[in-house]
Amino acid sequence: MKVAVPGLLILIGMVSLIWMGIVQGAIPEVGVQGLQTGQFAGRQVRLQGVIEAIETDVRPMRFTIRDMQDPEVRYPVIVDDHRPDIFKPDTDVAVIGILDPETGVFEGTKIFTKCPSKYEASDPGSMGSVAARSGESVPPEDPPIDPE
């Protein structure tokens, strides 16, 4: 009984903090298709999709995101954040931000691309050129831009 009161206080604290944290801080996770419903316009969401075309990869980055299931559904995105290492077309991406209902542009403040997995093998059928697959060295198709 001596520790019942502290135990009860800890339990009450835990439930209250989780409740407050979720109510104040949890945000909806939506696909690109979900944005079309209009229900999330002006609300902060975590938008999940696939990078389609990159307009600029310098901060603020501009690109088009497409739905994972329906590639026809797309939205323009502008993100003011660091460029992640794996920022290229056909990469799964999550952007935290708000859809501006007037411009139709999703304005993001944070971008996450998926880390290279230890648990997802690459498909031999989707890897670069045949030369690369068979182990030959190939020059990069898109070398870094010469600043000069």
Partner: peptide, 28 residues
């Protein structure tokens, strides 16, 4: 597990970001 729990209970995936974890755990 909140994204999974919220999907089952509320029918909507809810994402929990780092600031929520900080708010909840720092007092403990």
């Amino acid at each position: 597990m909140w994204p999974k729990i919220s999907k089952e209970w509320l029918g909507q995936d809810m994402s929990v970001l780092a600031p929520v974890y900080n708010k909840v755990t720092v007092p403990f």
